[in-house]
Amino acid sequence: MSHHLVEARNLSFSYPDGTPALKDVNFRITHGESVAFIGASGAGKSTLIHHLNGYLMPQAGEVRIGEVPVTRETVSGIRRTVGMLFQDPDDQLFMPTVSDDVAFGPLNLGLPRDEVDQRVTDSLSVVGIEHLRDRPPYKLSGGEKRAAAIACVIAGAPDILAMDEPSSDLDPWSRRQLIQLLAGFKHTKIIATHDLDLALDLCERVIVLHKGEVRKDGKTREIFSDEEMLLECHLEKPLRMQT
């Protein structure tokens, strides 16, 4: 069994007001893959990402992480496996200092204090923000907040990283830093994004969502070459592939 396996089988979901968000979604992501979910606003990307760590539960079908179905009973174990990076880092950073925030996950895992301190140091070092360890998160810049949020997630040593619009609100330099950082991670990566150039850099596979359904699933370059399909899904070729 691989802990890194992520699978959706006939997954459907509607919000309480009746808005359908996902319809019969199927995919299987295997160990070490980097996959981007792309689609227009309202296509269901965030809803799908929220299913991967049990924030939302399937109304029909199922989501499986490493052969374990996501249910209310399994959700705490699932959350150890799937690290979630939120769209707004301000939602993710809630402790008085960056190091306290990074330590939050490892402390909840019940690790001894030495190990927690080591994980904090290692995680801050991986994302290159050791100098921010005693700073209050709300005083950081957008790029620094994003880096701190990533340090928080990797401190829990998840097998899978699920990210919701990781490059939103970043300046070009911070965005480039983020891409280099994520490219170095060996985790299984699942990225919901509008940033098609980021998907081109980081993901070998792309799943296109349109109105809650999987419109196409395939190799990144092949998908981005299908201009007609992209246009139908309110998308366009990444800037780098435009002539």
């Binding site: 924030y55 939602d91 996950g105 402390l107 909840n108 204090r113 928080c152 829990g156």
Partner: peptide
């Protein structure tokens, strides 16, 4: 709260 749950919050705050 979701962010806290994602990082294993179970109702107890632990201090470093």
């Amino acid at each position: 709260y979701l962010a806290m749950s994602c990082r294993g919050f179970d109702g107890a705050f632990r201090s470093r």
